[in-house]
Simulated scan of single mutants.
Amino acid sequence: MTEARSSGAPTVLRVVLGKRLHDLREKARLSYEQAAEALDVTHATIRRMEKAEVGLKIPYVEKLLHTYGITDPDEVEGFLALAREANRPGWWHRYRDVLPEWFSAFVSLEGEANLIRAYEPHYVPGLLQTEDYARAVLRSGLAHASDEEIERGVALRRERQALITRDAAPMLWAVMDETVLRRTIGGRDIMRRQVDRLIEACDMPNVRLQLMPFAAGPHPLMYGPFHIFRFGIREIPDVVCVESLVGAVYLDQRGDVSTFLEALDRMCAQAPPTRSTKAVLGGIRKEI
């Protein structure tokens, strides 16, 4: 992945295998053009395979492995088995009728990360939303959507939330502006239940929540929402997703990611510590 609008939703495994093909080609000291000759394709095809921009055609992968000097049958078959697995659509594929392409990439990254850090200035993070709150959020953003489409969106969000209660669940560390809880979404009853959900989340071992109060003044992230994904796979760098009204930009260049990490760390140091979040939420709950 590079800095670009997502034009697809490669699984993280496909990204890893693309990186491995890149490393094998370089170890064999072959250029893109030389690798392409082995397949009778253009060099652009090799580049796109290595960048996970296309699916991994099994005959192509097998031919490349032999071209790169990988001849052990067990090693070749192991790689091909992973390629077949990487080509399978993610579970979210069945929601493609209501899932924008740019967000498919987000869900793929979210599902494979072992650490998810987020800054949310407008809404409760999707992984912690109640169904009623999620329904109200979707309705506000998709004014022309049918009731069926809204309910499909809620169902997708519900399936995503299983992520944080599964075995080996990722760490979710989210910072929200106080604005998130002061802006009524869907009515007071819905907001009360949403705050109750956040209070419950504070007791989860893999969830850390911080609230940036109005009284704290300006902070380094007064621009817009973003997420940072970190993986337990060395081939995958940290990825930042910066959302906008019409899509998202995904960044994985070290300098870009470091800028976001540094700003988020400064904000976390400026906000009240996580141990006080539950009490703060309880106070806000009484005021709603």
Rank of each mutant, 00 (worst) to 15 (best):
S6T: 14
S6E: 15
A9K: 11
V12W: 06
R14K: 03
L24V: 09
Y32M: 07
E33K: 11
A35V: 03
E37W: 11
A38F: 01
D40V: 04
A44Y: 06
R48P: 00
R48D: 01
K51V: 15
E53G: 11
I58T: 03
I58E: 00
I58D: 01
E62D: 07
L64W: 01
Y68W: 08
Y68T: 11
T71I: 13
E75Y: 07
F79S: 09
A83L: 05
N87M: 10
W91Q: 01
H93C: 07
V98R: 07
L99C: 07
E101H: 13
E101D: 11
W102N: 02
F103Y: 07
S104G: 12
L109E: 04
G111L: 08
N114L: 09
L115D: 08
A118Q: 11
E120R: 04
Y123L: 15
V124G: 05
L127C: 00
L127P: 02
L128P: 04
A134G: 09
R135C: 07
A136C: 03
V137A: 05
L138A: 10
S140I: 12
G141D: 03
L142C: 14
H144S: 15
A145V: 05
A145Y: 09
D147V: 07
D147N: 03
D147F: 03
I150C: 05
R152N: 09
A155Q: 12
R158L: 05
R158M: 08
Q161E: 12
A162W: 11
L163W: 10
I164P: 06
T165P: 14
R166Q: 13
R166S: 13
A168I: 06
A168F: 06
A169S: 02
V175L: 05
E178Q: 05
T179F: 12
R183H: 10
T184R: 12
I190K: 02
R193K: 13
R193S: 13
V195Y: 01
D196P: 04
R197L: 15
E200M: 03
C202L: 00
L209P: 00
M212I: 08
F214A: 01
A215L: 09
A216I: 04
A216Y: 04
G217D: 07
P218C: 12
L221F: 08
P225S: 08
H227Q: 10
I228K: 02
F229H: 03
I233G: 05
I236R: 00
P237M: 14
E243S: 01
V246S: 15
G247R: 15
A248K: 03
V249R: 01
L251N: 09
S258N: 13
S258Q: 12
F260D: 01
F260R: 00
F260K: 01
L261E: 15
D265N: 04
C268F: 13
C268S: 11
Q270K: 06
P272C: 02
T274C: 02
R275N: 13
